[in-house]
């Protein structure tokens, strides 16, 4: 077994110092070391996007990074985006528009959508579909996911001061 490496990351605002194997993927670090199981693993080829988190404010697939590569970074997972008492507009949009069924792709989908709206606050339907093509959903046919993102975009436009998540 390879020698462990010391890393420091801030996850959802909390600083963690951990010793990790160099081969440990960021997604497994989040799920298994930190117990943040909201970030899911849906494939082993970086296609499905279920593991999408924000790394220093940008959406990344956490299965494409080793935990050691996140050393010194700030990470937001679905658990840090918003809570039941204070939902992020994208979370609210998914609930309002029935943007989820089994819920498994949902955290990654929400993180990818939130990232899109950070970059492009008023995306067209085509831009939404394009931005989410790295996230697979087998339940919804994407119909209500598109509507959920549109809901969130409208909500964020109408409410000045909705905090960005990172």
């Amino acid at each position: 077994m390879a020698e462990k490496v010391q890393i420091k990351v801030v996850v959802n605002g909390v600083e963690h110092h951990s010793e990790v194997e160099p081969r440990l993927l960021l997604v497994h670090y989040l799920r298994e070391t930190l117990g943040l199981t909201g970030t899911h693993v849906g494939c082993d080829t970086s296609q499905c996007g279920a593991c999408t988190v924000h790394l220093d404010g940008q959406a990344v697939k956490s299965c494409t990074l080793f935990a050691v590569q996140a050393d010194g970074s700030s990470i937001t997972t679905i658990e840090g985006l918003g809570s039941v008492d204070s939902l992020h507009p994208v979370q609210e949009g998914f609930w309002e528009m029935h943007g989820l069924q089994c819920g498994f792709c949902t955290p990654g989908m929400i993180m990818a959508a939130a990232d899109l709206l950070n970059r492009n606050p008023q995306p067209s339907e085509e831009e939404i579909r394009h931005a989410l093509e790295g996230n697979l959903c087998r339940c919804t046919g994407y119909h209500n996911i598109v509507r959920a993102v549109q809901y969130a975009a409208n909500k964020m436009a109408g409410k000045v001061g909705v905090a960005a998540d990172d």
């Binding site: 117990g35 899911h40 918003g82 609930w95 819920g103 949902t106």
Partner: peptide
């Protein structure tokens, strides 16, 4: 009606088999 199961899924607090330790 909006779904009652959704709050746990949209906040990453669902409980799938692989989430269990």
């Amino acid at each position: 009606m909006k779904r009652v199961e959704d709050p746990r899924f949209i906040t990453g607090t669902g409980n799938y088999t692989d989430d269990m330790t």
